[in-house]
Design a protein around this nucleic acid. Structure first.
Length: 213
DNA sequence: CTCCCGATAT
DNA sequence: ATATCAGGAG
């Protein structure tokens, strides 16, 4: 069940009032560090990622360091984020490709970003939005869950499908902010296990809440 | 589709 | 004990 265009507009307005300033919570000082932090954030909380990246970037500030590093030493530094073998391998190979193809710089287009090891559409769109200021619709677990709860799109498990459907409904200038706001909203209010519908400022517009009452 | 996988909240 | 966390590769 989809929400009306007018309600979607109202929801976007309320979300902006709720979270006026939106910025990624991932610690980073340049596009490369944001890229690595975002790769690490797969199925892991930002808080957990931030616990490891400071030490990680102190040891390996640039692609060169990761490319020359022993895989084990990367694994040890990122261990607590989970999937540590796959992530370490991806980070090393990603750094190697950045050096070989892009002179160590992070490319600023979706097509190039998604070809990097460990980088899918979600990670690529995070980097586009938060490092380059290019509109990108980030569909992570929160956005996927909440955009259907609120009736922005039909329920789906396909993140790419959701991404394209959301780009139709949300104004392009809002794409970056929309994703970040839904993520904060998802952590604080529209929580996966136990959504706080009683105190939710969007419940009167929420398709799932209204159909449950 | 399965596999990768630790930390945390419930 | 189990679900969930800014997913991606094969």
């Amino acid at each position: 069940m989809l929400n009306t265009k007018l309600n979607i507009k109202k929801i976007l307005k309320i979300l902006k009032e709720l979270y006026p300033l939106v910025e990624t919570a991932l610690y980073h000082k340049n596009p490369f560090q944001l890229l690595i932090a975002t790769i690490l954030s797969a199925r892991c909380t930002d808080k957990q990622v931030n616990k490891v990246v400071k030490k990680l970037f102190q040891q390996f500030p640039e692609p060169k360091g990761f490319a020359e590093a022993d895989l084990k030493s990367i694994e040890n530094l990122i261990y607590s984020t989970g999937y540590y073998k796959a992530k370490a391998n991806n980070i090393k190979r990603c750094s190697e490709m950045l050096l070989k193809k892009y002179n160590g710089e992070v490319p600023g287009s979706l097509e190039k970003l998604v070809k990097l090891p460990g980088v899918g559409r979600k990670t690529a769109n995070v980097v586009l939005g938060s490092a380059f200021g290019i509109p990108g619709m980030v569909v992570d677990t929160h956005v996927l869950r909440i955009s259907s709860r609120l009736g922005f799109i039909e329920k789906t498990k396909d993140a790419k499908k959701a991404e394209f459907a959301l780009m139709e409904v949300v104004p392009k200038k809002d794409w970056n902010g929309f994703s970040l706001r839904l993520i904060f909203f998802g952590r604080q209010i529209c929580i996966a296990r136990k959504p706080l519908c009683k105190t939710c400022p969007l419940s009167e517009f929420c398709i799932e809440y209204k159909s449950a009452v």
